[in-house]
Design a protein around this nucleic acid. Structure first.
Lengths: 154, 154
DNA sequence: TATTGTTATACTCTATAACTATA
DNA sequence: TATAGTTATAGAGTATAACAATA
C-alpha cells in the first residue's frame, strides 16, 4: 500500500487509508474523555442492550475472562453496573449507568461530527452514492461472514 | 449509530462500519501470523525506511520508550534489527530482517486479497467512482491535518 | 455433568520518570 | 546543557487454565 494521498490510489488503498483515519478519529475522541476504544465499544453495545458477560464476550469477540476485567474497570469508573440475572443464578447482566450513557453519547456525537467534516468535500449526490455503494458492500459482507457488524461501535 | 446493515444507513454509519470491518481484517491477518496490529504497522513502516527510534516514535505516534519495547519484542522474534547510526553516536537505526520483510509481505498480501473480496460486489465503474471520491476526501483531510496517513499500515 | 462467571498467571502495549551516553 | 535511547514502574488489555456456584 502506498501512503501518498496525492498519488493515484487503488480502490483497496483508498478504502484502507480511509478506514484507519476513521478508526483513529474514534480512538482520539474516546481518549479525550479518558477511555480506550474497547471501553467505548463496550458502552456503545450497552446503549440498547443489557447483555450477560457471556453475550458481551461474543459481541466483542473476546474471552469471557477478558470481558470480566473490562467490566471491572468500567464499573470502577462508574460507567456500567452488574446485576444478577432473574432467569439464571449463574448469569450477570451488565448495563450502563447514567454517567456511562452520557459519556457514550458525548463521544459518539463528537465522532459523528468529525466524520461529517471528513466527508464535507462531497456533494449531496456524491454522499448519497457513497452511502448506497458502501451499504451494498456491508450487506454482502454481513451475509457472508455473519454478525460481525455488531461488534463495532454500537 | 445503527448496527443493522439491512436498514437504511447514514453516510457516517456506513463509513464507520466499513472502517471497523477493514481494521478487523488486518488485525486478523496479523494475528494469523502471530503478530499484533502495532507490530504489523512497525514492519509496514520499515518496508521502505530505516528510521531511528525517535523517528519511529513520531511515525507511530508513540513515546520513545514504547517504541523501545516494541522494537525489543520484534527483535526477539527476529523481525527487525538495530544498528548504530553512522552519523550520531546516540542514535539507533531500525531495519527489517529478511524474515520480517517476508512476514510483512505475506500479511499485506492477504489483507489486500480480503479487501478486494470485500469490494467484489461493485462493478468496475462503481469501484472507480468510489476510489475517486475517497481519494478527494483523503487528500483534503491530509491537507487539513498533516501527515497522519503515514502512520497507518505503511 | 455442563455452563456462567471470576480469579491466577503471563504476556503485550503504553506512558511517565529517571537514568546513561553522546552531542 | 540538550538529545537519543534504555530501564523501572505502573496500569490497561488479552488469553489460558483452574476454580466456585448454579443448572
Amino acid at each position: 500500500m502506498s501512503d501518498d494521498p496525492s498519488a493515484a490510489l487503488t480502490t483497496t488503498d483508498a478504502v484502507a487509508q480511509l478506514s484507519f483515519r476513521v478508526h483513529a478519529l474514534l480512538e482520539a475522541h474516546a481518549a479525550d474523555h479518558g477511555i480506550s476504544l474497547i471501553q467505548m465499544r463496550l458502552l456503545g453495545i450497552l446503549r440498547d442492550r443489557r447483555p450477560t458477560v457471556n453475550e458481551l464476550a461474543r459481541l466483542l469477540g473476546l474471552d469471557k475472562s477478558s470481558v470480566s476485567g473490562l467490566v471491572d474497570r468500567a464499573e470502577r469508573r462508574g460507567l456500567v453496573a452488574r446485576s444478577p440475572s432473574p432467569h439464571d443464578g449463574r448469569s450477570v447482566l451488565v448495563s450502563l449507568t447514567t454517567g456511562g450513557r452520557r459519556l457514550a453519547r458525548t463521544v459518539s456525537d463528537a465522532f459523528d461530527t468529525d466524520v461529517e467534516a471528513l466527508l464535507a468535500p462531497l456533494s449531496q449526490a456524491e454522499g448519497d452514492a457513497l452511502t448506497a455503494v458502501l451499504q451494498r458492500v456491508l450487506v454482502a459482507d454481513a451475509a457472508a461472514h455473519g454478525v460481525s457488524l455488531l461488534t463495532t461501535v454500537d
